[in-house]
Simulated scan of single mutants.
Amino acid sequence: MKRLNKLKKDYDAIEIPPELDDLVKQSIQAAKKPKKKSSPLRNWSIGVVAAAALFVGSINVSPTFANSLGNIPVLGSIVKVFTIQTLTMEEETYQANLNTPAIDGLRNEGLQTALNEKYIEENKELFTKFKEEFAKMEEAGGGHFGMDSGYEVKTDTEQILSIARYKVTTAGSSSTEMQYDTIDKQHTILLTLPSLFKDDSYVEIITTYIQKEMKKQMEEDENTTYVAVEGADLEFSSIQKDQDFYITADHKLVISFDQYEVAPGYMGVVTFEIPSDILQDALVGDTYIQ
């Protein structure tokens, strides 16, 4: 914690620019070119993306820390993901089991510390919300309430680490929400969906494919439907610019929707693997999506 606080103080002296995704794109393009001597701009931009994407502007990047990133060789790394903390509560009608992941082995220790701190804070916040809901239900006469959280490593290659984190809330029926972090281990970059593309055209391209795929699946299986509530006008219309996603080991983009987001609850979390060929013209490069 002392080390993280020191990083925060150092970072606070430098202003974060708003064009974070543009900086990631520069790094993606740079990764495709023959290796040259690292420029101060490139080193600084990688550090900004790593810190700012996690702390939403509260942490800035110091020149010393950023320069150290530029000296990291582009090689594979052995990265471990493990459970560092479990928060539990077990009552007759109230249960919580919140498992917190931690990452070890990233060369960018600042990014690694920031991710781990984020995961701990997320689960602490969930546990606080659980206890608040538990107290409200007790005051109202009791009930049944449960909350579980955990994680799954979706991809772990020499280049890419994709971690899925889930939260399941149960109160009569259950609801599952997902979050994903996808990291370029070689260049220590936390990837965002917009950073993979030249402009916003990917939104329409991916949306059109998913709409067609939804119709195809419904035609092939009568038990498949993509209307959130029967009879309501809640059919899928578009992905968000920052839609949840991860990248597979064979460099495919997978778009993810939470339970109830685009379909009835019985379909659970819904994912679509997007064909890479329809994305080629919109991608910044083929470093990640092939």
Rank of each mutant, 00 (worst) to 15 (best):
M218H: 00
I28Y: 06
F272Y: 15
N43V: 07
S27E: 03
G76N: 05
F236G: 05
A52P: 03
Q179C: 07
N67E: 11
L126D: 13
F257T: 03
I120Y: 10
M178S: 09
Q95W: 08
L234V: 09
I205V: 14
A30Y: 04
S62H: 06
T192M: 02
D242H: 13
E90H: 10
Y94G: 07
G141T: 10
R165W: 00
K129V: 15
S256M: 12
D244S: 15
I160P: 01
T128L: 15
L7I: 07
T182R: 01
M214P: 02
K124D: 11
P275I: 10
N5H: 04
L98R: 02
L126E: 12
E19V: 09
K212S: 15
T182D: 03
K212L: 09
I120S: 11
Q159K: 10
E261T: 09
K198T: 04
M178T: 03
N71F: 05
I59L: 13
A135I: 12
I78N: 06
A52T: 10
K32I: 04
A228H: 05
E19T: 13
A13S: 09
S62V: 05
V48S: 09
E230T: 08
P264S: 09
P40G: 11
A96Q: 07
S174H: 11
L69T: 10
L54T: 14
V74M: 03
V81C: 02
I289S: 06
K80L: 04
A50Y: 07
E177M: 09
E220R: 09
Q85H: 12
T64V: 10
T176C: 06
I274K: 04
N43W: 03
R165T: 14
P264G: 08
I206P: 01
Q179T: 15
S237N: 06
A66V: 02
V48G: 00
I163Q: 00
D200Y: 01
V203G: 03
D10H: 06
T64R: 07
L20K: 02
F55K: 06
E15Q: 11
G268H: 07
I28M: 10
Q29R: 04
G146L: 04
N123L: 11
F236N: 04
L190K: 08
